[in-house]
Deep mutational scan, measured.
Amino acid sequence: MPVRRGHVAPQNTFLDTIIRKFEGQSRKFIIANARVENCAVIYCNDGFCELCGYSRAEVMQRPCTCDFLHGPRTQRRAAAQIAQALLGAEERKVEIAFYRKDGSCFLCLVDVVPVKNEDGAVIMFILNFEVVMEKDMVGSPAHDTNHRGPPTSWLAPGRAKTFRLKLPALLALTARESSVRSGGAGGAGAPGAVVVDVDLTPAAPSSESLALDEVTAMDNHVAGLGPAEERRALVGPGSPPRSAPGQLPSPRAHSLNPDASGSSCSLARTRSRESCASVRRASSADDIEAMRAGVLPPPPRHASTGAMHPLRSGLLNSTSDSDLVRYRTISKIPQITLNFVDLKGDPFLASPTSDREIIAPKIKERTHNVTEKVTQVLSLGADVLPEYKLQAPRIHRWTILHYSPFKAVWDWLILLLVIYTAVFTPYSAAFLLKETEEGPPATECGYACQPLAVVDLIVDIMFIVDILINFRTTYVNANEEVVSHPGRIAVHYFKGWFLIDMVAAIPFDLLI
C-alpha cells in the first residue's frame, strides 16, 4: 500500500533555474538572501570558489559584500557603492579590487542584480563577478574607477581610450546646418538635424578633445543650467548677453562664444560640459537660429522629431539603469545623424518603425519583477520565466494532490484497515475457520451469522477504491517536481505499489 509523501509542494524551481543557467555559462556568482541580516550568502558556485580561493563552506553565510576579499588596494568608495546597491532595488555595476585567499590582487567587475517577489519586494541578490585585470595590471588604489561605466561593446579594446569628441564640431553647429540641408533625401539625416562627426583615429590627448566618459557625465550638469543662461549661451556672438549692473557675465554663455574659444586653444572642462549641455537642449539648428531671432517656433511634425517616441515608452518600462547606459552608448555611435529632440514631445505622434532597438522591449506582467540581467542570462521568455513566489501546480481535472487534506485522511483510514487485516486475518484463519468446520452448517442466516465476513468484505472494497484513487494521485519525481499527468501517474504506480495493492485487495476469504 503506498505511503508516498512529498510535502515540499507547491515547489518553486526558480532558484534552481537560475543556478542551472548560470552554471551553463561558466559564470562566477553568488546568491544572497536579502531578508536576513547583512544579506548572507546562501549559494556560491564553483567558479566563484576558484576565483577567490575560498571553499564553499568558508563563503556560505558570510555577508555578500565580500568584505573578506578586501585588501589594501580595495577602494572604500567601491565598497560603499556595493553596500548601497544592496540597500536599493536597481541593478548596478561596480569595479573593485579584490584579494584572493593567497593574497593576489585582481580588479573585478561586480554586477549586483536584485530579484523581487510578486509584491515588488527584493528577496534575493545575485552578484556576478568578472575579472577585468590581474594584480600586475591593477593601478594605484588612489585612482577611482567606479565613477565610470563599463566599456562599450562596439569599441575595440585597444581603442576604448582613444575615443574623442571634438569640441569644434559642437561649436560649428550653425555652420554645418547648410551642408545638412543640402544633403536632402540623399543624406542619412532628416531636415533640421545636426550631424556630429566623431574622430576615432588614435591621437595624443589634446586640450581640444573630450573623453567619452566626460560626455556621459554632461547629463548630470544640465539641471544646474538655468533657462535664461541656456538661451544666452545659444544666442551666440551676435547678441551678447546682458548683465545687470554690478553683475558679471555668465561664464556659461561665454563658453560657447566662437570668438572667445578661437582665441585660446584650450577650454576648461567645466565650460566644455556646460556648452555641450546647452546645445543638447535645442532640438535642431533651426531652433538655434530661432533663439537668435527671439522667436522659438513649435517643433515640426516630421520623422526626426518622432524618433524618440518609442524611446520614451522603453525608458518607462525599463527595469534597470543598464538600459540608460545602453541608450547613452548607442546615442554616441560615430558617423550617424543625431536628432536633438526633447523627450517631452507630442504624445499624438505616431511611433516610426526603427531597425535598431535601443531599449529592451516591454516586459510582460509575469516578468515585471525580474531584472534585465536575470532575463538576459536565463534566456527565457515571458511565458517560461515565473515570478519568485509559491505557485500552485497546474493539475488535470479529477486529480488528487498527494499533500491535500483528503489524501491525508484517506491514508490514515487505509492504515487502520491494514492494521485490522494484519490482526484479524490470522485470527480468523486459526480459530474461526476451525469452529466453522466443526459446527453445523448455517446457510440460512447468511452474513448475519458471520459479522467478521462483512467487515472483511468492506475492507476489500476499500482497498479496491484505494487502488483507483492512487491512479489519480500526484507524486514527486526525482527532481522534486509534482507530477499531475494521468499517464505518468499510471506508469509510476504500475512500477511501484500496484502489484502489492492488488494482492492485498483480493478477497481470499470469499474465494475459499
Rank of each mutant, 00 (worst) to 15 (best):
A285R: 11
I96N: 02
M133F: 10
T270M: 07
A350L: 07
P237K: 14
A285S: 04
V94R: 01
D102P: 01
Y99N: 01
D219S: 05
A85D: 01
C39F: 07
G381S: 07
S55W: 01
G47N: 12
R100V: 01
V377W: 04
R76C: 15
A80G: 10
E365N: 15
N12P: 12
I19K: 03
D219A: 05
V94A: 06
G224W: 06
M60A: 01
L315T: 12
L170N: 08
S318Y: 10
R252F: 09
T337K: 14
A32V: 03
C49N: 10
A78P: 05
I96V: 11
P249D: 04
S351E: 14
A79Q: 10
L338Y: 15
R92I: 12
H302M: 12
E130C: 04
L155Y: 06
N12H: 15
P2I: 02
I19N: 01
M218E: 12
H70D: 01
V195H: 04
D46K: 05
P151F: 15
Q376L: 03
V115L: 13
F340D: 08
M218Y: 13
N117K: 13
A277C: 14
T145I: 06
D144L: 14
P114N: 04
V113Y: 11
E118I: 06
I30A: 01
K116S: 13
N317Y: 12
L167I: 14
G192L: 03
G184E: 06
L349S: 03
N38G: 13
H221F: 15
L210K: 01
P150T: 13
R269L: 11
S239C: 08
V377I: 09
P386Y: 03
P72T: 04
H70A: 06
R273D: 14
E50M: 03
P63G: 08
G158M: 12
A253L: 14
N257M: 15
G183K: 11
N146R: 13
A57N: 13
N257Y: 11
P63N: 12
P2M: 04
G149L: 11
I96S: 01
G139M: 14
Q11D: 13
T375S: 07
L86W: 01
R366Y: 08
A290M: 15
A85W: 01
P157D: 13
S261A: 08
V41P: 01
L107N: 15
T162Y: 06
R328N: 12
F29R: 01
R280K: 07
E130I: 05
E23Y: 01
G53P: 01
L167M: 15
P205M: 06
R242Q: 13
R281D: 14
S354D: 10
D287K: 13
N128F: 06
G187S: 15
F340K: 14
A228I: 07
S255M: 05
V279G: 11
R242F: 14
H7F: 08
G224D: 05
A32F: 01
D144N: 15
L311G: 11
A244R: 12
G246R: 14
T65A: 08
N45K: 01
C105L: 10
E208F: 04
Y54V: 01
D287S: 09
R77Q: 15
V325E: 10
R301I: 09
P63T: 13
S206K: 14
C276R: 07
M291L: 12
P205V: 06
K161F: 04
K101S: 04
K101R: 13
Q25K: 10
G189P: 15
L378T: 02
V3M: 12
R62L: 10
R5W: 15
L315N: 15
R92Y: 05
M124C: 05
S354F: 07
G187E: 15
T329E: 07
Y54R: 01
R312T: 14
H221A: 07
R273L: 11
F340H: 14
H70F: 13
V138K: 10
R4V: 09
R159N: 07
T353D: 13
C49D: 01
C52V: 13
P157T: 13
P72C: 02
A277T: 14
F340M: 15
D16R: 11
A193F: 05
N117V: 09
S206N: 09
T201R: 09
G246H: 15
D197C: 01
P352A: 12
S55F: 01
K28A: 13
F29W: 01
T371H: 04
C265Q: 08
S264I: 14
P352R: 09
L87Y: 14
H254L: 07
L165G: 15
V115Y: 13
Q247Y: 14
N369I: 11
P245E: 14
D355S: 10
A40P: 15
D286N: 05
N45R: 01
